[in-house]
């Protein structure tokens, strides 16, 4: 699987995670194109089912990029997101999947550099894990 290029979905909060990604772009800091960003008004609205559906549809890794703790625009949406991520990690463990395929990250709007670095590291981690069972099944079906 040397040429494996994972599909990664990142749910990014409009106020921080997404703006940090934008900042990375503005500063011409590149990060892997494997990461597909979905902008959400607040990560508190990213439900467990969204993480599961992303994996089910073939994402090899999924993460949530939220505001720093204490900085949520809607008070505690990022803390709700943590709870959802933990729940799905537990579900993946129960199913024999690697729980590392799901992650929680926190950025301020100014952390473009850190966003790019985290995207790079997460992509490398998923590459090391290899394709998810669902993405393997999907590619076989194709």
């Amino acid at each position: 699987m040397d040429n494996f290029e994972p599909e990664i979905v990142a749910f990014c909060c409009h106020y921080c995670g997404y703006t940090a990604a934008d900042m990375a772009g503005t500063r011409r800091i590149s990060y892997p194109s494997n990461v597909k960003i979905i902008r959400v008004p607040c990560t508190g609205k990213v439900d467990a089912i969204h993480l599961m559906k992303a994996l089910e549809k073939g994402a090899d890794g999924v993460y949530i990029a939220a505001c720093l703790e204490g900085d949520c625009h809607f008070k505690d949406g990022n803390l709700r997101a943590v709870a959802h991520v933990e729940k799905i990690k537990k579900t993946l463990e129960d199913l024999g999947w690697e729980p590392e395929r799901v992650a929680m990250m926190n950025f301020s709007a100014a952390m473009g550099q850190q966003f790019a670095q985290a995207a790079e590291e997460f992509t490398e981690k998923i590459k090391a894990l290899g394709p998810s069972p669902a993405s393997q099944a999907t590619s076989k079906a194709v």
Binding site: K53, D94, P133, Q136
Partner: peptide
């Protein structure tokens, strides 16, 4: 409905594995 979706999704992930 939400839990139906989550369980169904988990069953599908399990079958993929």
């Amino acid at each position: 409905r939400k839990e139906v979706g989550l369980l169904s999704s988990a069953i599908r992930l399990n079958s993929a594995k």
